[in-house]
Amino acid sequence: MSLVARHLEENGIPTVILGCARDIVEQCGVPRFVFADFPLGNPCGKPFDVEMQRHIVGMGLELLETATGPGIIVQAPYVWSDDTSWKRQIFTQEQPFLEGEAKEHWLESKEEYRQKKQAGLV
């Protein structure tokens, strides 16, 4: 997603990313980024919280208007929950990221990619 933002920007279209994985977006380097410190899945605000979603989307629009240079990151002023255990538990053996069918699908798509790569298709 960061690569797409960069490409659009290089070709004259301003962009803003709304995302939850701060380090990944920062590692790539994007023009404008609104970071929500939420679990992966809800970068635009908590489900069904219309006001919060309006605020976060609004922050993105403001960044489009006000940014004068690249690499600007602003953080949405919200805490997901008083219980921060999700931050510790994500991607751990005690709480696998993908399980059951989801893991099978992931392994299948990995294998498909491996085969395509071997055949020179990707």
């Binding site: 997603m1 960061s2 797409v4 933002a5 659009l8 279209i13 301003p14 962009t15 803003v16 990313i17 709304l18 995302g19 939850c20 994985a21 977006v25 992966l40 899945g41 970068p43 635009c44 989307v57 993105g60 489009l64």
Partner: peptide
């Protein structure tokens, strides 16, 4: 004119 991008 401008694009919002939302990774999940």
């Amino acid at each position: 004119d401008a694009v919002l991008l939302t990774p999940i």
